[in-house]
Write a protein that binds this DNA or RNA. Sequence first.
DNA 1: TCAAAAGTGTTGACTTTACACCCATGA
DNA 2: TCATGGGTGTAAAGTCAACACTTTTGA
Lengths: 245, 245
Amino acid sequence: MTEREMRMKTAEIEKITHLDYFNIAISVDCVIFGYDDKELKVLLIKSDFKEFEGLYSLLGDLVKPDEDIESASYRVLKERTGMDDVYLEQVQAFGSVDRHPSGRVITIAYYSLIDIKHHKLQLSHNELSWQPVNDIRKLAFDHKIILDTSLIRLQQQVMDYPVVFNLLPEKFSLRELQELYEAILGVELDRRNFRKKMSIKEWLVDIDEMESDVPHRPGKLYKLKPEFRKKSGRKKAAPIKQMSL
Amino acid sequence: MTEREMRMKTAEIEKITHLDYFNIAISVDCVIFGYDDKELKVLLIKSDFKEFEGLYSLLGDLVKPDEDIESASYRVLKERTGMDDVYLEQVQAFGSVDRHPSGRVITIAYYSLIDIKHHKLQLSHNELSWQPVNDIRKLAFDHKIILDTSLIRLQQQVMDYPVVFNLLPEKFSLRELQELYEAILGVELDRRNFRKKMSIKEWLVDIDEMESDVPHRPGKLYKLKPEFRKKSGRKKAAPIKQMSL
DNA sequence: TCAAAAGTGTTGACTTTACACCCATGA
DNA sequence: TCATGGGTGTAAAGTCAACACTTTTGA
């Protein structure tokens, strides 16, 4: 690189920096929750940014000018998990001036609930990994705050609406369901009271099958009644033309 | 330089790569609630967009590149109401591609609760007006949806936290407080049960004064205990250098 | 036969709702 | 003296929390 080229680069960056003073980029970040091994997990990726070397971050991308923000988060989900038709809900926007090292980027956080078993796909590829929510101490950017906020939101939702089923396979036992609630809420629940409450809510249908492969008395299996199967997803991701990266 | 380091983007390069995407404008819109004449009201302005001639819209502005989104909404509030130190809370972002006729604008909605009596200022100036929330049928842009979403959020908050006091003067009677809850929630409440609940919550302090100017037996006046006076406002608006418009 | 979880009801504490009368004030 | 809301308690219904024993299965 000649000195002239070096100077050019500087000038170019100068111009960009200036431009960027008048412009704000907007991204979506997805807090993708899964449930496995009796723990609530979240899908993370090794950060690409030098500034955050060694840290993980949420999955996100810039919003394209011709794409709804909800579609953008569906796109990120689909690109990263291969899954479509998932539960997705906006949490809120995060927009501190200094939250992103390369400039002004306001991000809109979404949280998503997926059945981790349906995934298993492009994991070892990029540096994606499922990590237990409770073990996470630090993330790139302000992603730890986004995660914490999303978890609180999930905990609130879970108390009122039948959303946790998006984290489970279609058929599940009451024990699995209770353990999932316990993992999300971080509390222990009384089994009899839990079952009573579930039967009052009338969310479940007994499908007359039993667990198998358990080292103890098998429990009945249930499904969520179809009328409660709201993916909350009104819009699907637009077809992906090209994989980013 | 290892291959991984090569693959790692620096912040500078990231900035260049994604220059294309700095093409979306971002705004805040404030749903400013007030309470007067036993009705919940919202502060609106005549839209100056041809596309929305005759319609009102929420108060908003573009976010400046060097300003936090929360500060931006404080700024809008201060510019429009002259009030500082108000209750303000983010609702969510709205980002449909076609929500704004003059281009791609993603907006972040905030709702605010103010004491309408402390306002009264620059009202007749621009075309600001307080309108009863229940009478509003149509607004410019997607502002009706933003309003509806904000109202639902307010209703949820009100059930759990002592926020309604931001809509009242410092001293108020239990009747006024109850009427306010009724206006927000759109239900009638039982007076005895309402008073019992308030006394259990222990939010109020009896200031040993009575109403005056009421055409009936005066009630006691109360204040909110100072420890509950959370404006939720961590950040104030940055000092305004120049009035927009 | 042991370990592990399935399945199942009752009681007391607390919360919520419904409801009615006398009182103080201003017009 | 009348109209208006202030101020107050109780009982019944419903919800929530705590708690233990028998049964079924696989190892």
